[in-house]
Amino acid sequence: MISPLQVNQLIRLRRSTFPDQFEKDRPIDEDIIWQLLENASWAPNHKATEPWHFTVFTGEGLKKFAAFQAGRYQQTAGEKFRQDKYNKLLTNPLKASHIIAIILRRSKTADIPEIEEIAAVSCAVENIYLSATAYGLGGYWSTGGPTYDPAAGGFFGLEEGDKLMGFFYLGHVRVPSVAGSRKPVKEKTTWVTT
């Protein structure tokens, strides 16, 4: 049994770790990626719709992902095009071991408000975050690149009603993130006792 102290510690150790902090050319074992995805699938979800879908990019797939997102940026940026942003979109994915596209796949049978399924997918992503932390891995959830690009649906296999909710970058940690802090929870809590 996991102690409350271990759970508290795991939650507080969770950090976003970015591609420049990853060890280059050190892939994560595929069995661990499968375990992270299995843990994600145990997230709470209304009416057991399990509204998440994951597309995993690794190896040559990272190059395909990078070329797609950089190309879409180049096609759509117009006058706002910046070479440094284009270069980052093209190179950052290659620093990761794996990138997981996070997809909300809406239930076709259950009458559930979309926000509840968005919340369920977000819980699944938190399970990935915590699992990566437990394995000593780094990662972060990005909503950049083609996340909100309507034309990206075909590349990621989106079906009608699906939403691309971003990408989870994963890698072995070379440079740890600094310790986090939070405002006191008492400042953000109201108790009603009578």
Rank of each mutant, 00 (worst) to 15 (best):
A96E: 01
A67R: 04
F81L: 05
G78P: 03
A96T: 04
H98I: 01
L94W: 11
F68W: 04
F68K: 00
E79S: 09
G78H: 10
G71H: 12
L94S: 12
T91L: 12
T76Y: 04
Q83K: 07
Q83V: 01
Q69S: 03
Y86N: 08
S97N: 13
P93M: 02
K95F: 14
E79F: 09
R82Y: 10
R72A: 14
R72K: 15
H98G: 00
F81D: 03
G71E: 12
R82K: 11
T91K: 11
Q69R: 05
H98L: 06
T76D: 09
R72M: 15
Q69I: 05
S97C: 13
A70V: 11
A70E: 06
R82V: 15
G78N: 08
Q74L: 15
H98Y: 04
F81W: 07
E79Y: 05
Y86A: 08
R82T: 14
L90Q: 08
K80Y: 08
N92C: 04
S97D: 10
L89R: 00
A70K: 09
N92D: 11
N87C: 11
L90H: 09
D84P: 06
N87V: 06
P93V: 04
E79I: 07
Y73F: 09
R82C: 13
Q69W: 06
N87D: 13
R72L: 13
T91S: 15
F68M: 01
Q75M: 07
K80R: 14
K95L: 15
G71L: 10
Q74A: 12
A77V: 10
H98A: 02
R82L: 14
Q74F: 15
G71W: 13
Q74W: 12
K85D: 04
Y73A: 01
Y73E: 02
Q75C: 03
D84W: 05
T91F: 05
A70M: 05
Y86D: 07
Y86F: 15
K95C: 12
Q74I: 06
F81G: 02
A70H: 07
G78S: 05
G71F: 14
K80T: 11
F68R: 02
Q74N: 13
